[in-house]
Design a protein around this nucleic acid. Structure first.
Lengths: 202, 202
DNA sequence: TCTCTTACTGACTTGCTGGTCAGCAAGTAT
DNA sequence: ATACTTGCTGACCAGCAAGTCAGTAAGAGA
């Protein structure tokens, strides 16, 4: 008889807990999620969770980092492998990447950042260093290359790559607030990219 | 002697409490704000607050409504008094209005909506009915007028007035998350409007 | 001036949740 | 088998904040 009541799996626990926490945070947000719910979801006792994560906050940070890091890697990989012209790159891989964001874990992260940013300055810093500033720098670089190529003219967009991201942000926020009322985010983003390209083309 | 320890001011209390609550929520967010802090800010006891508002949630709703309503009025007033051409109206009063939003109480409301929307569906409905759907309808109407005028061509923007608002959203979210790292939101919005107009001009 | 209504107070209760820890049992070494 | 290490459990605690209510006093009315 005697199913063992639990297994010892030191290696896998952190990730399992982290994933459970992400799911819980996605549903309820950070503040409204109880540590015990996370533990239950991960099939683990609350005590064990606290063995791997000192506080609820630290768990939160681990979750954000866990989701963000692979996505950043994906972005940088996408950006590196670009033998394309600037415009072709924008219309191709970049557009695809942007369209995927509103339905991806990234949007959960954004929501969590918006809700919790004021209370977690170090998390904001991490996010800035690893995601925002890098992404914006990459966009800027891409535009510069287009200008150097003679594809694009100099324009305010060069200093404001946030313009590029605006419709993605819009789509994400829309999804958070008006989850049900549908919005054609793909079309929104496509049109916006069209507009930008028309605007900056040499 | 005998300063009276308090005054009875049934008329003014609700608004005073509401204003105090808005200030508190703006600083800390809804979840992190203690009812007693709101009461203290309003110069009132917690008990009295609960005499005017049944629960913390109801207070929250009252606050949102109190901030949102006058702003909607302002918007509709702006939109009505328009003897201008569509483009002139966009470059003039509409642009001014949009530029004001990121620094206004509206941005606090947005933040609260993003954080609390999942837990307050009725509030989302209220916001949709009174703000979002109206604003978007007005924009759509404005674009239609431009098309009828012969100023603008038909374009995807007609069905996606969210495109218009995207950089405002971006600016607001930026302000929430990266409060310190400055962003020239005016320029962002201006450039974006430029872009849109160039794109839709007949 | 006295009474009566009610706006207002603040100490209290209650329920909840982050965090702890003594002990238990799964796996490992001998 | 037996002893030992340590991943893991779950009952427990402490503190905090929402919400209550018996009592107080402002101020209106007679």
């Amino acid at each position: 008889m005697a199913e063992p009541r639990y297994q010892r799996r030191k290696k896998d626990r952190p990730q399992e807990i982290t994933e459970a926490a992400f799911a819980a945070f996605a549903e309820k947000g950070f503040a409204a999620t109880k540590v015990e719910d996370v533990a239950r979801r991960a099939g683990v006792s609350k005590g064990l969770l606290y063995l791997y994560f000192k506080t609820k906050e630290e768990l939160f940070k681990a979750v954000i980092r866990g989701v963000v890091t692979p996505r950043v890697d994906e972005l940088t990989r996408t950006l590196d492998s670009s033998a394309l012209s600037a415009e072709a790159f924008i219309r191709g891989p970049l557009l695809t990447f942007m369209k995927r964001l509103p339905g991806s874990p990234a949007s959960v992260v954004i929501r969590l950042m918006i809700s919790e940013a004021p209370k977690h300055p170090d998390l904001v810093e991490y996010y800035w260093d690893n995601v925002a500033s890098r992404g914006l720098a990459a966009l800027r670089q891409l535009l510069e290359r287009g200008v150097a190529n003679g594809e694009f003219r100099e324009s305010a967009v060069n200093e404001l790559p946030q313009l590029f991201v605006a419709p993605v942000m819009m789509s994400i926020v829309w999804g958070i607030v008006f989850a049900d009322r549908s919005l054609d985010t793909d079309r929104l983003i496509e049109t916006h990219v069209d507009m930008i390209l028309a605007y900056i083309r040499a």
